[in-house]
């Protein structure tokens, strides 16, 4: 799924054949035995129409199918044409939280003074908000980093994860303090020591130290349970 800003950027870039007036589009691939796929197309078309789609179009041939995906695969570089820089975020949420999360992302973006284009793996809840910023503008990069962190914490809060496929690496090391408790992170370190007692392999990545989490100082949000749920945080 792509929202308006993402699909328009992708269309201008890749000429995939997306309707630029739409507020969002959803691509749904069905593969398998020819007869089954025919049946599924009918089933899914009906489902999408009932769920409020204004139009459901089947790629006519292999060329059009590839073009539809080229738009999706090109969405990231395409967004690079509507803003000087973009920052791709990678969180996962339960699919039922998507309407709420999209609204919150919009609100968070506004409060950080930045734009966001959304690309989403609809089938598995993997969210890729693309934060638009300008590295040449003082403070913009830091604001993008902060907004990205806030979006990931939102994912944890609705019961999701801070990374669906990009990994923690260095980028999300602080958000690991939100996703896991001290004891859980300590268990990860203990597992690491079973392989690498001196901690030489890829230090400073993936698992934050207790010192980092203390310094980072964020509240620990655990599987949707926050310590003071009545407090307004958005």
């Amino acid at each position: 799924m792509m929202d308006g800003p993402a699909l328009r950027a992708a269309e201008d870039f890749a000429h995939a054949g997306y309707p630029k007036s739409a507020a969002a589009i959803l691509l749904c691939e069905l593969d398998g035995a020819a007869h089954d796929v025919e049946e599924e197309i009918a089933r899914v078309t009906a489902l999408l129409t009932t769920s409020g789609a204004s139009e459901v179009r089947l790629a006519r041939d292999e060329d059009e199918r590839k073009r539809f995906w080229a738009g999706r695969k090109g969405a990231f570089p395409a967004v690079g044409r509507i803003a000087p820089d973009y920052y791709c975020i990678d969180g996962t949420i339960p699919r039922r939280s998507l309407p709420k999360v999209l609204t919150e992302i919009g609100r968070l973006a506004e409060s950080h003074g930045l734009g966001v284009a959304n690309v989403f793996h609809a089938g598995d809840g993997n969210l890729h908000p693309l934060i638009l910023y300008d590295a040449g503008k003082p403070g913009d990069m830091e604001a993008a980093e902060a907004l990205g962190g806030a979006i990931l914490e939102l994912c944890v809060e609705v019961g999701g994860a801070i990374t669906g496929e990009h990994g923690v690496g260095r980028e999300k090391i602080n958000q690991m303090c939100s996703q896991f408790s001290d004891a859980e992170r300590e268990a990860f370190f203990a597992l690491k020591r079973a392989f690498d007692p001196k901690g030489l392999l890829n230090p400073g990545k993936t698992i934050p130290t207790l010192a980092r989490c203390a310094e980072y100082g964020h509240m620990h949000v655990h599987a949707g349970q926050v310590s003071h749920p009545h407090l307004e945080r958005f």
């Binding site: 691939e29 409020g52 789609a53 179009r57």
Partner: peptide, 18 residues
């Protein structure tokens, strides 16, 4: 492999359809 493209006039409706 076939692909469907569904268009929505409202992001929240699309999100609900997902």
């Amino acid at each position: 492999a076939r692909v469907l493209l569904a268009c929505f006039d409202d992001v929240e409706v699309a999100a609900g359809a997902v």
